[in-house]
Measured scan of single mutants.
Amino acid sequence: MDVFMKGLSKAKEGVVAAAEKTKQGVAEAAGKTKEGVLYVGSKTKEGVVHGVATVAEKTKEQVTNVGGAVVTGVTAVAQKTVEGAGSIAAATGFVKKDQLGKNEEGAPQEGILEDMPVDPDNEAYEMPSEEGYQDYEPEA
């Protein structure tokens, strides 16, 4: 019985440690998101679009440190934060509304985080759909 109880105690310690790591990862992701939003706020009209992409990228980098179902929630929060940063930029006159959601080359930025393969159960990952990809044929 002692062996059984000791095993359960060790398992509990492992769960607590994993929860603490997840909590730490979420806190880091939130900190990076805040950094990115402050970065966007300090940019001029020309830099705002690039700044919004930076927020998304920093958040995406930190999301990889967070495991399990938390990833889905962090990704949703990050996307809403990026959308909010863009709205703030438009409201303050840093950028025109028609410039939001495009990178410096004018290509749409939507789907940055949505296409990231995420499995809350950590069982399997699927690649994003290939609808947006084109076949590449090298020139002879």
Rank of each mutant, 00 (worst) to 15 (best):
K6R: 09
T22V: 15
V16N: 04
A91I: 09
V82F: 13
E105V: 07
P108C: 06
V3G: 02
Q109D: 14
T75C: 13
T59P: 01
V48K: 01
K10P: 00
V3Q: 02
K23P: 00
K32M: 04
E13H: 03
D135C: 08
P117Q: 12
T72R: 11
V70I: 15
V118I: 05
H50P: 01
Q24F: 13
M127W: 03
D98Q: 06
A85I: 10
T72D: 12
K43C: 06
D115T: 09
D98N: 15
M127R: 09
A85P: 04
K34C: 07
A56Q: 03
Q99D: 15
V16S: 04
D98F: 03
Y133T: 07
T22C: 07
Y39V: 03
I88A: 02
A90L: 13
V55Y: 15
F4D: 01
K21S: 07
V82I: 03
G41V: 14
E83N: 13
G25S: 13
A30Q: 01
Q99Y: 09
T59V: 10
E57P: 02
T54I: 12
T81G: 04
V82H: 03
E61G: 10
A27K: 11
Q62C: 08
Q109V: 11
K96P: 02
E130A: 08
A56E: 01
A124I: 04
P128W: 09
M127C: 10
A56V: 13
T92C: 07
A89T: 05
Q99V: 14
E139I: 11
G132W: 14
V118K: 12
T22M: 14
Q62I: 10
V66R: 04
V49M: 14
K97W: 15
K58A: 08
A69Y: 13
I88M: 08
M127N: 09
S87I: 13
K32C: 02
K43I: 12
K21P: 00
T44C: 15
D115L: 09
T72L: 09
V48N: 00
G68N: 06
S129A: 08
G68F: 00
E110W: 04
T75D: 02
A107H: 05
V118H: 06
G36K: 14
G25C: 12
E131A: 11
V16Y: 13
L113F: 08
E131T: 12
L38F: 13
K45I: 14
L8P: 01
K23E: 00
T44M: 15
E13V: 05
G36M: 15
M116Y: 04
K80Y: 09
Q109M: 02
E28W: 06
K96R: 09
G101T: 15
S42K: 11
A19I: 08
K32W: 13
N103M: 10
Q79T: 11
A11N: 00
Y133I: 04
A27G: 03
A19P: 00
T81L: 14
V55G: 01
Q24C: 04
L113Y: 11
I88E: 02
V77W: 14
G31I: 07
V82M: 15
T92S: 05
S9M: 10
E131P: 05
K80S: 03
E105K: 04
G14Y: 15
F94A: 14
A30Y: 13
E126W: 02
E57V: 05
F4Y: 15
Y39D: 01
E110T: 13
A90G: 00
G73W: 10
A91M: 11
Y133E: 10
K102H: 05
A90N: 15
G93S: 05
T92L: 10
P128I: 12
V66C: 07
E13C: 07
K21E: 00
G67T: 10
E28K: 09
A27I: 15
G31F: 15
G106Y: 04
I88R: 04
K21H: 02
V48T: 02
A107C: 07
D135M: 11
A76Y: 15
V26F: 07
Q99W: 14
A29P: 00
K34P: 00
T44E: 00
P117K: 08
K6E: 03
K96W: 13
N103R: 11
Y133L: 11
Y136M: 14
V16G: 02
F94W: 11
E46W: 05
V118W: 06
G51E: 01
V63T: 02
K10I: 15
Q24T: 14
V49S: 11
Y39N: 06
M1W: 00
Y136W: 07
G36S: 12
K58R: 15
A17H: 04
V70Y: 15
V26W: 14
L113V: 04
